[in-house]
Amino acid sequence: MNNSVANTGRLAWAALRMLLVLTVVTGVLYPLAVTGIAQGLFNDKANGSIVKADGREVGSELIGQTWNIRGTENPDPKWFQPRPSNSGYDPLATGSSQLGASDAKLTKMVGDAKKQVASFNGVPESEVPKDAVTGSASAIDPHISPEYAEIQIKRVAKANGLSEQQVTKLVDDHTEGRTAGFLGEPHINVLRLNLALKDLAAH
């Protein structure tokens, strides 16, 4: 009996020492080494791809944000609008609605969003694309589809005093195709597009 207790103790002690050594190797040295390489080679990306405009930080290229009229929950007609978000684009509360594809609540949310997007942009409901009425997985999706950008052109051009051709060109310039031509889906970064729009409207 004493012998087996001693054996168990010895085994647990060896296991603990193994864990501590592996903690140093994989929990300290490994992340520090990767951080060193990342900070040296890809400093901007490793720190969150922060975007600056007019000399101040206005967001991250990879994190979506709201484009509402200041101090309200209402979308501002002068900006391209992002996808619906489950968390109001709060990066500290990521995650989707989790509602099933046949859920009555989700069906109603999609229906309401469709009406709102159609009337806001002055297009028929049949032209509203799927990403405009569905919440993303992360709730901070920085992108919209080229189709969603297209139905917003008329409204955005009018609100900024620009021609539709000017804004169409802007959208085309900011449309990113699939990575390497076949990975994922075409998309447009809303922050980049709106910052370019702001520049264009100022000139």
Binding site: T134, S136, A137, D141, I144, G184, E185
Partner: peptide, 20 residues
């Protein structure tokens, strides 16, 4: 399939645009 996905025109609820 699914009423919400049918109405939206695609199963994009809970999916990211860059992935589809």
């Amino acid at each position: 399939p699914g009423t919400a996905s049918q109405l939206a025109g695609g199963a994009m609820e809970g999916k990211e645009q860059r992935f589809g």
